[in-house]
Amino acid sequence: MRSLPLMAIAALLAFSPTAQAAEEGKRITVKGEAIDTWCYFSGVMGGPDAVVGSAHHTCALWCSAGGIPVGLLAEDGQVYMVLKIENDDQSNGGDTQMSIASHVITADGMHYQRDGINYIVVSEVVADDDIQVLNHEDYGPVPSMAIREPKK
């Protein structure tokens, strides 16, 4: 079962010429977890269940601070790349992005598709349900170096 992450990325980014059509955006309200897209799609830190929620929270913060775009993993499994959020004209590292890392949020915004990729410009985070996937007891911190054991 190797190659699934790449297959998944290929599926995510499947090309369609029709996706280049310029039309008006579609307003949507979507609920999902604010994820670290790099670790989620690369698979290097583990499977998809390990790189979400409380297990991956610390890494998600630092990936966001380091420039990795935040994604919104919706309840139906779709991933929306966040282009902007509320009054913050960036996709990562801003106060809002940091405060919602790994949280399940409900976002109201404009949905776009381009080159087969879903994008969202979040106009408002209408609900923040905090971290809902409490998987740290199953996986520990992912990666393990994210939180070090205190020195005795």
Partner: peptide, 28 residues
């Protein structure tokens, strides 16, 4: 990328990361 422990996990990942066919939604 990673190995999956079983078929169900692999399918779950594939389902989790798949997108619907692009519909030509906007990008203006």
């Amino acid at each position: 990328g990673v190995d999956h422990a079983n078929k169900a996990e692999a399918q779950a990942h594939e389902n989790a990361t798949a997108l619907p066919p692009p519909s030509g939604l906007p990008f203006n």
